[in-house]
């Protein structure tokens, strides 16, 4: 007790000394960007961008800005391979970005997400102008547009989203796509998740002309089923997400044991179909769909 009080008093005193200073001023022309945490003065042509969210990384790379640093989903696997970029410094993980590593890169723009990095905003903003999207759960195309605005690449992002729609339509007419498709993500022994028409890959399947069979969707995103109800996933084509598309052993037992009901099962990469949210990821999903249709033809 007798020692705790002085320690705590010292704590109060020292903390009082460390009043944060006003944020650093950026050189050159700036614009005002509205975002989830208010407004930020963002450089017109950001040169050193740090991104803390996979969608922001994907979008930045897609519009031709290679970030200097990115928070990675996993320390072990690093940056998503489908992006085909390297030379981006890792700055911690998406849930735990490393503030000092970010500051060391001397960024002129930081992109983050309110739902994940809320607590870090003030400290990030003292390093560089920081723009937050609200949540990664919002429709990805809306978030991509905000990222486009922050990077001063609105036209490019809009163009990418148009290209995506056009390519969908092109695939649909080229392969005369019809019929139903289910997208299954095996969760564990107890649960299979079906992705709905609003989800990232689900919406891509729909826009190429497949119909996703009706389920009891949660917000159109997802529906979980027990293996007992695996026949609910029945469709002309079933896509199953996996970490290793070459390993047919990753097809869940419930589907393997009911082969008669599932004539067409295709393994697809989880890191693209589930996690690869963004304009580049969407193109990669379309690549996969086109490859599938080419083989099926």
């Amino acid at each position: 007790m007798r020692f705790t009080v002085p320690v705590v008093l010292a704590a109060v005193f020292l903390a009082g000394c460390s009043t944060p200073e006003s944020s650093t001023s950026a050189d050159g022309a700036t614009r005002t960007v509205e975002h989830a945490r208010g407004t930020a003065q963002v450089p017109d042509a950001p040169q050193r961008v740090v991104v803390l969210e996979p969608l922001e990384l994907d979008t930045a790379v897609a519009v031709g800005i290679t970030p200097v640093g990115a928070a990675v989903a996993s320390n072990t696997s690093g940056l998503p391979k489908y992006l085909g970029v390297d030379g981006i410094a890792p700055v911690g993980t998406v849930p735990e970005p490393d503030l000092e590593a970010i500051a060391a890169l001397k960024p002129d723009l930081i992109l983050g997400t309110e739902s994940r990095h809320s607590k870090l905003y003030d400290q990030l903003a003292s390093v560089a102008p920081t723009v937050f999207m609200k949540t990664q759960a919002d429709p990805w195309q809306d978030n991509a547009k905000l990222i486009g605005t922050a990077l001063n690449k609105s036209t490019e992002v809009a163009g990418l989203l148009d290209t995506y729609q056009q390519r969908c339509a092109a695939i649909r007419s080229k392969y005369q796509v019809s019929g139903t498709a289910s997208l299954v993500r095996p969760r564990d022994e107890t649960t299979l998740s079906l992705y709905g028409p609003v989800s990232f890959a689900g919406s891509t399947l729909q826009c190429t002309g497949f119909t996703i069979p009706e389920q009891e969707w949660e917000d159109g995103l997802q529906a979980d089923i027990s293996p007992e109800n695996v026949l609910k996933a029945k469709a002309d084509h079933v896509f199953v997400t996996t970490a290793d598309v070459a390993d047919t052993g990753t097809v869940p037992a419930a589907i393997r044991d009911n082969q008669a009901a599932f004539p067409s099962v295709t393994l697809v990469d989880t890191s693209v179909w589930v996690s690869g949210v963004g304009p580049k990821g969407a193109q990669t999903v379309l690549d996969d769909i086109e490859k599938f249709l080419e083989t099926a033809k």
């Binding site: 903390a15 998406v94 849930p95 735990e96 990095h117 607590k119 003030d122 400290q123 589930v274 996690s275």
Partner: peptide, 22 residues
Amino acid sequence: VELDTAMFASAWGAGSLNGVGA
């Protein structure tokens, strides 16, 4: 919740001093 959200929540749930301000 989605895997990435679950990981974020778990990191918080473990207890973290990351980003504690004055």
